[in-house]
């Protein structure tokens, strides 16, 4: 079974790119990682089409865990999930975790072949501490 994919959504394309870079350097390339950030005009923001593309790029049959920063990133990610084909919707989750640390924790868990639920829990443990 493939490893769970990780999608990083930030209002800043640089934060999203940097967080994805950290994941690749710390966890390696066995986990599919994609990132998206910024609005279509090059400013801060998040956009549903960018998130849909990132989900597609990080797609894994084991599912995809999305890490988000501020409010709009979460709203847009939830909207993007609803716009996916029905068969994919149940295999994508938004994690309630800090974007950078959560992405690294989620990817670490995923690299060991964990399920989507376990990957989400690993990211969200950061909030419980």
């Amino acid at each position: 079974m493939a490893n769970v994919g990780i999608v990083i959504v930030s209002h800043s394309s640089k934060v999203a790119e940097g967080a994805a870079d950290m994941v690749r350097q710390m966890v390696g390339t066995t986990v599919p990682v994609a990132h998206t950030g910024g609005n279509p005009d090059g400013g801060l923001g998040t956009a549903v089409d960018g998130i849909l593309t990132a989900i597609d790029r990080a797609w894994s049959d084991a599912g995809v865990a999305i890490l988000v920063d501020l409010g709009g990133a979460e709203t847009n990610s939830e909207m993007a999930i609803e716009m996916l084909p029905a068969a994919r919707q149940a295999r994508v989750v938004v994690c309630n975790a800090p974007v950078v640390e959560g992405a690294v924790m989620a990817a670490t868990e995923s690299s060991g072949g964990a399920t989507l639920d376990a990957v989400k829990r690993a990211a969200e443990e950061l909030m419980a501490n």
Binding site: N39, P40, G45, T46, A47, V48, D49, G71, G72, T75, N76, E78, M79, M83
Partner: peptide
């Protein structure tokens, strides 16, 4: 609106 507006307003007005 979902695809073009962005921010939180895109998904909210789109919905």
């Amino acid at each position: 609106l979902v695809m073009k507006v962005g921010g939180a307003s895109g998904p909210l007005y789109g919905t």
